[in-house]
Design a protein around this nucleic acid. Structure first.
Lengths: 208, 208
DNA sequence: TTAGCTTCCGATCGGTCGGTTGCTATATTC
DNA sequence: GAATATAGCAACCGACCGATCGGAAGCTAA
């Protein structure tokens, strides 16, 4: 009927598939994301959708990568302008709250990584590996930023970066649950209170 | 071939279905739990399995209820012997860690409530309502226990029970992720360190 | 002895899954 | 302008999904 052909248009189509896939997967999960549903939503045939990826697993990985780009753009990029250390951590955490609270247009079902993490944490396969890799990357970045803040004397010298990272991740998992499952409007305020405790500046008795 | 008939045996069969269903659902999710898989695992026919529940949704609710009983037995019951307030909170939290760390025989794929919570948090329906209800019940119990500890002077007087409950839930969501997705053996120690900070006794400058 | 109830099975239903095939129509390359 | 490459479609595949059906087997009560 309407065979689009140019390479540029094909890339655009691929992008539309991934965008729609992110939206569906954030609600139904990466396993619940089906090719037929994707095709119907986009007014395409199943073969037309699958032709861009070959395999559902490859499609899932592409959606995951697309979601990762959204996350980086929404959370990490806005914080890059802030000064390294505590200010950047603060900006990062605030953007992270906004991402979970307002990014409904992109992730109507909440953070796709939380969903995918729980969905695949008990399985094998490339998707699980990709989810675990992304999770580790972001934890490492958080810990590195925390180390900078400690080195700069902005956080107590005895701060354990891995420990604070763990507790930060917990905060955001809980925030996602309170927003999505319990629809609790108090959740962002509670998160900020927890952050105030976790990222409390070092007592000003340092030399520098 | 082997049609069991007595009411007692039927109840036993129902229990076996639920037990197996819990194990499957903790790995595949409540949606990924299929009647055919259940029937194969138990050496039954699909009709025999579904006959006990009528509907997959009813089966999911029964599995959820069964998992709730396991959780109560593993986490709440052991803590009932402890004195109300802080000691009971401590016992509760320690049992909770053990539940996530060692209950692999019952929940091979990690805590079923975490899985179900994320799986249904963006949908409607009775299963989602049941998950949200259980989540609220346990948060309320935690908060009530925290209030007791504050009233007894075991925790600082300005402690916000809902706030601490939120942070406790976050700790256990993070623990589940580190155990299941990242297979990090340090996770329980990190959880205990976080608990030490969250449940630090009030400074002993109180009168009573 | 027998009627009625329940448990469970085998067979089957319509529907959807991921994936394949053959084709057309366009874009690109020479 | 001819040859090649490819985006996308329609049709279809075997497998599996949840669900329904009639009936067989065994318990219980009259």
């Amino acid at each position: 009927m309407s065979p689009r052909k140019s390479a540029a248009e094909a890339r655009a189509t691929r992008g539309r598939i991934i965008d729609r896939g992110i939206a569906i997967a954030s609600v139904e999960g990466l396993e619940g994301l089906t090719i037929g549903r994707l095709a119907t939503d986009l007014g395409m045939s199943k073969a037309g959708v699958l032709g861009h990826f070959g395999t559902k697993e490859t499609l899932q990985l592409a959606v995951l990568e697309g979601a990762s780009a959204v996350f980086v753009r929404a959370v990490w990029h806005p914080a890059e302008d802030a000064a390294p250390g505590l200010p950047r951590l603060r900006a990062l955490c605030e953007a992270w709250i906004g991402y979970l609270e307002h990014e409904r247009a992109v992730f109507p079902g909440g953070c796709l990584f939380t969903t995918a993490s729980v969905e695949f944490d008990a399985r094998g396969g490339r998707v699980r590996d990709a989810v675990a890799r992304l999770s580790r990357v972001w934890r490492r970045r958080l810990a590195a930023e925390l180390r900078q803040a400690v080195a700069a004397g902005e956080l107590p010298a005895d701060t354990d970066p891995e420990q604070v990272t763990y507790e930060l991740v917990g905060c955001y998992l809980a925030l996602n649950q309170e927003l999505q499952l319990l629809a609790d409007p108090e959740a962002p305020a509670r998160t900020r209170r927890a952050l105030d405790r976790l990222l409390a500046p070092a007592a000003a008795d340092h030399s520098r």
